[in-house]
Simulated assay, not measured.
Amino acid sequence: MSEGFKPTAADMRRHATAFVARVASSRLPLDTSVASLRVVDFLIDGLRKGAPGRDRPDAVLFGLGAYVGEVLVRCAGAVWVDLDADQRAYFGQQVGVRMPDGRVWNPLGKVVNRYEVGAEESLRTFYLTLPGRAGGRECAAL
């Protein structure tokens, strides 16, 4: 991503949709379901294996982060929010999601952590253990 790129909450669904469209030819099951977060984990594992000695693939990680955030929106009742100055300093991101219980989470940063740390930062596990989710929701398709 370019140094001056500053995503906004209003644009995040568009970013997630554009990412899914870019990878659609690969037939990856990115359908905004909770199960699809395993696919994201596998994709990041593949990026990690192919990345030694190369720069971090920030544009791809941003797309995956937008997608993970959109899963939280569609399955857990979250909403995209523009972070305030303190939240931006803490999370290192411009946007995050607010859960129904008011907690703010950072899916873009969580994807970067998954890439940098590995499997112990599983995105599927993150979702399944995430406090504040709205229960009993059907995930809306992207």
Results as ranks from 00 to 15, higher is better:
residue 9 A to W: 02
residue 10 A to L: 06
residue 12 M to L: 14
residue 14 R to C: 01
residue 15 H to L: 11
residue 15 H to E: 09
residue 16 A to Q: 04
residue 17 T to F: 00
residue 17 T to L: 13
residue 17 T to N: 11
residue 18 A to K: 10
residue 19 F to H: 11
residue 20 V to K: 14
residue 22 R to P: 00
residue 22 R to C: 01
residue 22 R to V: 05
residue 22 R to Q: 14
residue 23 V to T: 14
residue 24 A to S: 15
residue 25 S to P: 10
residue 30 L to A: 10
residue 30 L to K: 07
residue 30 L to H: 06
residue 33 S to T: 15
residue 35 A to V: 10
residue 36 S to H: 06
residue 37 L to F: 09
residue 38 R to G: 14
residue 39 V to T: 15
residue 39 V to W: 00
residue 39 V to I: 15
residue 40 V to Q: 09
residue 42 F to C: 01
residue 44 I to G: 02
residue 44 I to S: 03
residue 44 I to Y: 06
residue 46 G to S: 12
residue 46 G to E: 11
residue 47 L to T: 03
residue 50 G to M: 11
residue 50 G to V: 02
residue 51 A to N: 15
residue 52 P to Y: 15
residue 52 P to G: 14
residue 52 P to N: 15
residue 52 P to A: 15
residue 53 G to S: 07
residue 53 G to H: 10
residue 53 G to Q: 06
residue 53 G to V: 11
residue 54 R to N: 13
residue 54 R to T: 11
residue 54 R to D: 09
residue 57 P to W: 00
residue 58 D to E: 14
residue 59 A to Q: 09
residue 61 L to Y: 06
residue 61 L to T: 08
residue 63 G to L: 08
residue 63 G to F: 05
residue 63 G to S: 09
residue 63 G to Y: 06
residue 64 L to A: 05
residue 67 Y to P: 11
residue 68 V to Y: 05
residue 68 V to Q: 05
residue 69 G to M: 05
residue 70 E to Q: 15
residue 71 V to Q: 05
residue 72 L to T: 02
residue 72 L to E: 04
residue 72 L to Y: 08
residue 73 V to G: 01
residue 74 R to C: 12
residue 75 C to W: 03
residue 75 C to L: 07
residue 77 G to P: 03
residue 77 G to F: 03
residue 80 W to L: 08
residue 82 D to N: 15
residue 83 L to Q: 08
residue 84 D to P: 01
residue 84 D to A: 12
residue 85 A to G: 02
residue 85 A to H: 09
residue 85 A to E: 14
residue 86 D to E: 13
residue 87 Q to Y: 10
residue 87 Q to I: 07
residue 88 R to E: 13
residue 89 A to M: 08
residue 89 A to G: 07
residue 90 Y to Q: 13
residue 91 F to H: 12
residue 91 F to D: 11
residue 92 G to Y: 05
residue 93 Q to V: 09
residue 93 Q to E: 15
residue 94 Q to I: 00
residue 95 V to D: 08
residue 96 G to Y: 01
residue 97 V to P: 07
residue 98 R to H: 04
residue 98 R to D: 02
residue 99 M to G: 04
residue 99 M to V: 11
residue 100 P to M: 13
residue 101 D to H: 13
residue 102 G to W: 06
residue 102 G to A: 05
residue 103 R to E: 04
residue 104 V to G: 02
residue 104 V to D: 06
residue 106 N to K: 08
residue 107 P to E: 00
residue 108 L to Q: 07
residue 108 L to I: 13
residue 109 G to T: 04
residue 111 V to G: 04
residue 112 V to G: 01
residue 115 Y to I: 08
residue 117 V to F: 03
residue 118 G to W: 01
residue 118 G to S: 07
residue 119 A to K: 12
residue 120 E to V: 10
residue 120 E to I: 05
residue 121 E to Q: 09
residue 121 E to S: 03
residue 121 E to V: 02
residue 122 S to L: 07
residue 122 S to H: 03
residue 122 S to V: 07
